[in-house]
Write a protein that binds this DNA or RNA. Structure first.
Lengths: 246, 246
DNA sequence: TGTGCGCCTTGACGCAGATCAACTTTGTTT
DNA sequence: AAACAAAGTTGATCTGCGTCAAGGCGCACA
């Protein structure tokens, strides 16, 4: 609610998400137009960026950090419906209110565009709309993948699925093609529970079980070492080859 | 797998989904271009249109009937990830294989476009791409709504949620603003189970329970009468106002 | 008129995960 | 260094839904 505008303006040309965000396909002159309408905002871990239904006068790309999208029922049950990582897009052009609660789970920097100018830009330059369509289709695939996790997987498979996602995404690969992977969990046990449709106790128990069986090794609460990614993916109930379509 | 091409070619101008499908925004001349590359296919109830991973050389709009998108795990667990009704779009431009199993659940007619020409059309005319983006964003919202159902709702709430969807969509409204609604279930108990992440026995029991408590009235196995839609939505755990953002 | 086959319903029982509760660890404030 | 809060772990118990099993209903086909 109280963003701290403590970032100096940054050049798009050396932006870390330049080639993956909604601006990925833009030509230099289009980038200049975007550069004129953009501004940065920073949020602290735990800060709520918007509540579902709030007026949102901007759309944005995550530059660094992580945020969650979640829905809450009247009685407090909560389901996370999206995990936003660097280069992911927030907000829906053509809709004024936020559809979900948006919360920063780590310190976060977003590259924001006021909605009106951005919408005008979308009408006039196909490169932005094209890229946004592609990103939205990817999001839809991810959401459907997650429906399988929520609807049909056991608690253990759910945890292994989540760990696999982090492992494949944040992987700090030592030797290439290594099966060993290390990463830091960006979520608390409670946030994981909200993502997986479990209670935090069950999350904790299943993580302990995977640790006990050496599928993962914990260093502290947040740092995870995966000795063999294939073993982890097998525990997730996925095809051992990862099932990636390209 | 063996489509019966028994439909005469139809004019786009009197197509029942003309104003809601991917072609909704097209100008007359654009429609003419689409008309040249389109063809119809019919499928029978129960027929598989494509298996996940199959080569798909076309994209399509559902003209009439219903189809499902679903994923299957190696051990046979299945999760439906989409329910396709008239005007919904099937297939992903820029990807050659089907991402999910696509099955006709009723007799079905689709308006198909060969992928290559359709992709070329998307590059050159913004109206198709614009509409597809809008439809994809709506699909994404629906998928996220369903994540809440799968992750956090009880069996009874899940059934009531599904009934609410049908009630709001297929409603044959008698007197306007009536709270009474009647519709036919387009899915078997097993398909409902696959959609809701339940077993078919649990689906059957919960439907019986809602019937016993007069939330719904069954006429045969498939025809459902909802005496008061608000009562049903309350059972679904939704805000009583339906929570629709426009 | 039976016989078989989908599709659906209902009952009995067991278990995975929720709930309730106590406690530990870690990090922050003073 | 004490005091506190936030985050995580673990145990005991309960319960909603899955599993297994039997049977019903409607319809096609011989």
């Amino acid at each position: 609610m109280t963003p701290s505008p403590d970032l100096v303006n940054q050049e798009c040309s050396d932006c870390p998400i330049r080639h993956r965000a909604v601006c990925a396909r833009c030509e230099p002159d289009e980038l200049t137009r975007l550069e004129e309408m953009k501004f940065y905002r920073s949020y602290q871990a735990g800060q709520t960026i918007a509540w579902a239904g709030d007026q949102m006068d901007f759309v944005a790309s995550v530059v660094s950090g992580a945020a969650t999208l979640s829905q809450t029922m009247e009685d407090g049950r909560r389901q996370m419906v999206g995990l936003l990582l660097p280069s992911d897009f927030v907000g829906r052009p053509g809709r004024s209110g936020a559809s979900y609660d948006v919360v920063a789970v780590t310190d976060l920097v977003m590259c924001c565009f006021r909605k009106k100018p951005f919408e005008r830009m979308m009408m006039t330059t196909p490169h932005v709309a094209e890229r946004l369509l592609e990103m939205t289709l990817d999001e839809l695939d991810a959401a459907r993948e997650w429906m399988l996790v929520l609807g049909r997987k056991t608690a253990r498979e759910k945890i292994a699925s989540l760990m696999s996602i982090f492992a494949q995404r944040d992987a700090v690969l030592g030797p290439k093609h290594s099966r060993t992977v290390q990463f830091d969990l960006p979520l608390t046990r409670e946030a994981m529970a909200d993502y997986l449709g479990l209670t935090l106790e069950t999350v904790s128990r299943q993580i302990s079980a995977l640790k006990r069986e050496k599928v993962i090794v914990l260093q502290g609460k947040r740092s995870v070492l995966v000795p063999d990614i294939d073993v982890l993916m097998e525990q997730a109930g996925d095809d051992s080859d990862g099932g990636l379509l390209i």
